[in-house]
């Protein structure tokens, strides 16, 4: 069983290292991740939103509804932990 697991790990590891060659170089301006929407956000974030931090502009303004969902998820997780750990107590 241990040998089988070792062979599986080596097999998956070799496949992953094989795939590393196809990834874009670090900081490559021609990489697909930086060519389309990334450039659009860098050009228009300051004009659209008016704050300097592009990450916050995307998080709170462009993707504001998504972040509201994230906050509700955190709240639901907190309620769930309270109900599981505090059996019978009130919130």
């Amino acid at each position: 069983m241990k040998k089988l697991a070792l062979i599986a790990v080596l097999f998956i590891g070799i496949i992953l290292f094989w795939a590393v060659e196809d990834m874009p170089a670090f900081g490559d301006p021609e990489a697909p991740a930086t060519r389309y929407t990334g450039e659009l956000y860098i050009r228009s974030a300051l004009h659209d939103v008016g704050i300097e931090n592009i990450v916050t502009a995307i998080l709170a303004s462009y993707r504001g509804f998504d972040t509201l969902g994230e906050v509700v998820v955190i709240f639901t997780a907190g309620i769930s932990v309270s109900l599981l750990l505090r059996r019978g107590g009130c919130l």
């Binding site: 008016g50 704050i51 916050t56 502009a57 955190i74 709240f75 997780a77 907190g78 932990v81």
Partner: peptide
């Protein structure tokens, strides 16, 4: 626009702080 984003961030911060501390209290 930026000030409203600050208010929104403050709401996120209050929520995260309260949930984390509530979990720590329970544990």
């Amino acid at each position: 626009h930026g000030l409203l984003i600050d208010v929104v961030e403050a709401g996120i911060g209050i929520n995260v702080m309260a949930v984390m501390t509530s979990i720590i209290y329970d544990i």
